[in-house]
Design a protein around this nucleic acid. Structure first.
Lengths: 351, 351
DNA sequence: TTGAAAGCGCTAACAG
DNA sequence: CTGTTAGCGCTTTCAA
C-alpha cells in the first residue's frame, strides 16, 4: 500500500509537498502539482486516515448517536441518518455510528479516543442526561431536539410551536369554531421529549388568541381503542358547537395515530373534509399517500437533518463567520409548512 | 488530554507496559496492573484511536455500506443497522457508516485510507458491481445477500429457498390442493436481487415435488389494484380445484403486499383462514400485529444481522479455527421459521 | 515556491 | 515479568 513517501519519490518532490498538494494549505506551482497528482493517480494513493488524524488532530469523522431502541418515530430515523451521512460526506467527513444505549459514556469515549471531530446527538429529550456530559466536551456537539437547558450547546429542531400555531390558525381561518388536539402516546410524554409540551402549549395559546375553544386529549396511544376514545371525548366537548352548526377541527399531533383517528371518525359516520377537519403532523409523502390525502403540517426529518449538517460544519469550520460562534447557545428552529389536502373543510363565511 | 506516557509516569512504569495492560498481549504482574489501572482511572485516560491504528494497523472500525436510497425494504434496514452496530460494539469495534450511493469507490476509499478493518455490504444484488471490487480488497468483506458469483467472499442471508419450501410444505400438509405465489414488486425483480429467484424457484420446486399445482404471479406491485389483479389471477386458475372442494393456499412473498392482498380477498368475500389460506414472508412482530394475525415465514433481519456479526468477527479474529478460513467462498444461510397464525385453514383429512 | 525534520501517541519487536 | 526503542504515515514548523 503506497504512502505519501512513495508518491513523493515518484513525483520527484519531498513528502511534505505531497501533503500540501493534498491539503491546499500552501501554494504549489503548476508543474509540481501536476506531477504529484499524476503520481497519486498512478499509485492509487490514499492518505492513511489514522496517520492523518494523529498528525493533524482532525479525524474527519463525525460521531452520530442514534436512539435505535427508543425512538419516538423509528421511521423518521432512517431518512435522518441518511441525510446526515450523505451531507457529512459532501463535507469530506465520514460518520461513525453509535447507539444511544451506550449512554453518556459514548460521548466521553468518542472524545477521549479522538474518534471524531464533532458529535451529533439525535432526539434529545427535555431533560437528557447526556446534555451535562455533552456540555463538558471539547469537541463540538450538535443537538437535534431542544432540551430544557441547552447549556451553551447548539440545537436544531423542527419548530413545533410554529407547527401547532400553523395547524390551529389554518383551521380557524377556515371557519372552525371548535378545535381538538389529539396528543402524543404516553411514552413520548413520559420521556418528556421537549416538543410534546412545545406543541400542545402553542396549540392552546394560538386557540386562545383566536378565541376558539380547544380540547387537548393526551396521552393518546397508537391503538384503535385509544383513538376511538380520544375522538369521542373531543366530539362530546364539541357537541354544543356542532349542534349550533359550527365546525370541528382536529389536530393530530402524532403522525402514527392518523389512520386510527380516521377510522374512528369513519365508524361514527363522520367524513373528514366534510363533517370534520383533520390536520396532522406528518411528512408530506405520508400525508399525500393516505386515503384520503390528509392535510398536514410537515415534519420533514430531511429538512431538519440538512439544517443540522449545515450548523454542524459551521461549528467545525468556524470560527470565521461573524455569526455567534463558540460556546453560545443557539437554537435553530426549522419552519414547518401547512398543506391543505382532502381532510380540511371550510365552515361558514370565509374568514 | 492525557497520553499513555502520562499514565506510565503516574504509575511508575514504562509506556509500553501501559499498552500491554490495555491489550493483554503480555502477562502483567498484579501490583503493576493495579497501579496502571488506577492511573488510567485517575487521568480518565483513553487511548488515541488514530495513533493506535497507525501503530497497530488495526482501526477497530467496521465499515457498513447501507443502501439507503435503494432498499427493497426500508423498514428492515433500521433493525439491521442497529444489530450490526451493537454487535460490533460488543466486539470492541465501531461502525463507520457509508451510503451505497457512493458506489464501488466507497470500498476502495475505506480500504485505501485504512478507515476500517472489515466491510459489511448490505443488500447485495445478484449481479452487483461492487462484488468485483470487493473481491480485490485486502480487508475482509462480508456480504449480506448472495450474488450470483460470490468470488470467494463470505455471504450471509436468509435462506429464501428454505422459506419458500417451508411455506409450500406448510400449506400442502394442511391439505391445500392448489397454491398461488404472489411475487415481488417489479423494482426488486429488475434489480434482480438474488432472493427473488431463489424464493420463487424453490416454491415451484416444492410444489412440484408435492404434486400440487402452483401459480406464480409476478411481479406484484404494492398497490391495491395490483393485489386485486394478482388475487384474481390465482383464483381463476384455482377455480376448478375450488369447485371440486379443494383448498387454495396463497404464499405472499413480499411482506409489504400483505394488507393489500388481505383486502383484495375481503372484497371478494373470502375470509383468510376459512375460505383460503395465506402465508406471508414477514417479520414475526408484523405478522402477529396484523388484523387478523397472519401465518408467516419469518424474515427476521435481526437473525441475519446477528449471524453477519458472528461471521464478520470470525473473519477478523480468525484464522485460528479449523473452519474454512481465508479466501474461501462461504455462504451462510439463516434458517427461517414458519408460524401458523389465524390465516391458515386445514383442508380435507389431515395429512 | 519547496525541502528537511520534528513529532503526533501508540504497538511490537528486541533485550534483558 | 518489564523496559527500551524503532517505527507507523502523516502535518507542520523552520529554513532556504
Amino acid at each position: 500500500m503506497p504512502t505519501s513517501k512513495d508518491v513523493a519519490r515518484l513525483a520527484g518532490v519531498s513528502q511534505s509537498t505531497v501533503s500540501y498538494v493534498l491539503s491546499g494549505k500552501r501554494p504549489i506551482s503548476d508543474p509540481v502539482r501536476r506531477r504529484v497528482e499524476a503520481a497519486i493517480e498512478q499509485l492509487t494513493y490514499h492518505p492513511n486516515a489514522g496517520a492523518r488524524a494523529l498528525a493533524g488532530s482532525r479525524t474527519h469523522v463525525v460521531g452520530l448517536v442514534v436512539p435505535f431502541g427508543a425512538s419516538a418515530d423509528p421511521a423518521g430515523l432512517l431518512p435522518f441518518i441518511e441525510t446526515i451521512t450523505s451531507g457529512t460526506r459532501e463535507h469530506d467527513h465520514d460518520v461513525l455510528l453509535v447507539t444511544a444505549d451506550e449512554g453518556p459514556s459514548a460521548l466521553t469515549r468518542l472524545e477521549g479516543r479522538r474518534l471524531c471531530d464533532a458529535i451529533v446527538l439525535m432526539e434529545v429529550e427535555a431533560d437528557d442526561p447526556r446534555i451535562a456530559v455533552a456540555a463538558g466536551l471539547r469537541v463540538p456537539v450538535l443537538l437535534v431536539g431542544v432540551p430544557d437547558d441547552p447549556r451553551g450547546l447548539t440545537c436544531v429542531d423542527l419548530d413545533f410551536a410554529a407547527a401547532a400555531r400553523l395547524a390551529v390558525e389554518g383551521l380557524v381561518e377556515r371557519g372552525h369554531s371548535h378545535l381538538g388536539v389529539l396528543g402524543y402516546p404516553a411514552g413520548a410524554v413520559e420521556r418528556d421529549i421537549g416538543y410534546v409540551r412545545r406543541f400542545t402549549g402553542a396549540a392552546l395559546a394560538a386557540a386562545r388568541e383566536a378565541g376558539v375553544p380547544c380540547e387537548v386529549v393526551a396521552p393518546v396511544e397508537h391503538t384503535a381503542d385509544a383513538a376511538r376514545e380520544a375522538v369521542g371525548r373531543v366530539l362530546t366537548a364539541a357537541a354544543p358547537t356542532l349542534a349550533a352548526g359550527g365546525g370541528l377541527g382536529l389536530v393530530v399531533a402524532s403522525g402514527g395515530a392518523v389512520p386510527l383517528v380516521l377510522s374512528a371518525l369513519g365508524e361514527r359516520g363522520l367524513v373528514p373534509g366534510r363533517d370534520v377537519s383533520v390536520v396532522a403532523m406528518l411528512p408530506d409523502a405520508s400525508a399525500a399517500a393516505m386515503q384520503p390525502p390528509v392535510s398536514n403540517v410537515s415534519t420533514e426529518s430531511r429538512d431538519v437533518s440538512r439544517r443540522a449538517v449545515r450548523e454542524l460544519f459551521r461549528l467545525l469550520d468556524g470560527p470565521g463567520e461573524d455569526d455567534d460562534e463558540g460556546g453560545g447557545t443557539t437554537v435553530h428552529l426549522v419552519p414547518p409548512r401547512l398543506t391543505h389536502r382532502r381532510t380540511t373543510a371550510t365552515w361558514g363565511p370565509p374568514g
